[in-house]
């Protein structure tokens, strides 16, 4: 066995810097995906057929093809069409938010449909217009119910972000790989990267529990 964790000690700060890169991608893509997911979910329950179809086809395509393919199409393929290069950061944010919007929209749609029909009727009976009702009455209740599923989606996003390595974004994963290549030692930096991801996911889980507890205040 040839393991020497001390050998990668000097490279730890370099790998740790990847946390910022990963977080920046995950947070921005998560928020954009969430916002876009809400819009898609509202399209899916809309009475307008065209919106409905758009959202359904969108979801079907983004769930039906590999994320890494979407990432590479945007980073390597899109410049052929738009005529300029996209930085790996923007390509990562774009593909992750577009992809997670598809999953999040399904979660939110299910959450909206699970809200008791009586809530809508009570709001209607008070003369509350449709968009206000969705925003103030239906969505808050839907979000509370789907919070665990949403947290799951964000956790997946955090871990899946490691594939930005293939478009040379300097995230945790890629830095660990570079350190491994430098020193001909892959096991140690990979284990270290794994620990970082794991801790990030644990903290995310913890934050999710806190938010959930806050939302359950009314129970």
């Amino acid at each position: 066995m040839d393991l020497d964790f001390t050998a990668i000690l000097p490279s730890l700060p370099y790998i740790l810097k990847g946390i910022g890169v990963t977080l920046k991608i995950v947070l921005v893509a998560g928020l954009l995906g969430f916002a876009f997911g809400i819009i898609l979910a509202i399209f899916k329950i809309s009475k307008y057929k065209a919106l409905h179809w758009f959202a359904d086809i969108y979801t079907s395509i983004f769930r039906g093809t590999p994320l890494i393919l979407q990432l590479m199409i945007i980073y390597y393929g899109a410049p052929q069409i738009i005529g300029f290069e996209i930085s790996s950061y923007y390509a990562a944010v774009a593909s992750f938010s577009l992809n997670s919007a598809a999953y999040i929209s399904e979660i939110i749609r299910a959450g909206i449909l699970a809200v008791d029909k009586g809530q809508k009727e009570a709001a209607q009976a008070l003369g509350v217009p449709g968009n206000r009702m969705m925003w103030d009455i239906i969505l808050p209740q839907a979000l509370k119910n789907i919070l665990p599923a949403l947290m799951n989606e964000f956790i997946t996003l955090t871990k899946e972000s490691a594939i930005v390595t293939v478009i040379a974004a300097n995230d945790i994963m890629r830095r660990a790989y570079i350190v491994g290549g430098d020193q001909y030692r892959f096991f140690e930096p990979m284990i270290f990267a794994g620990m970082i991801y794991y801790l990030m996911v644990i903290s995310l889980t913890f934050v999710g529990k806190l938010v959930e507890r806050r939302l359950r205040q009314s129970d």
Binding site: D116, G118, Q119, A122, Q141, S218
Partner: peptide, 9 residues
């Protein structure tokens, strides 16, 4: 309503 339908949040 029969089942109140208060806004729980």
């Amino acid at each position: 309503f029969q089942h109140f339908h208060l806004f729980p949040h």
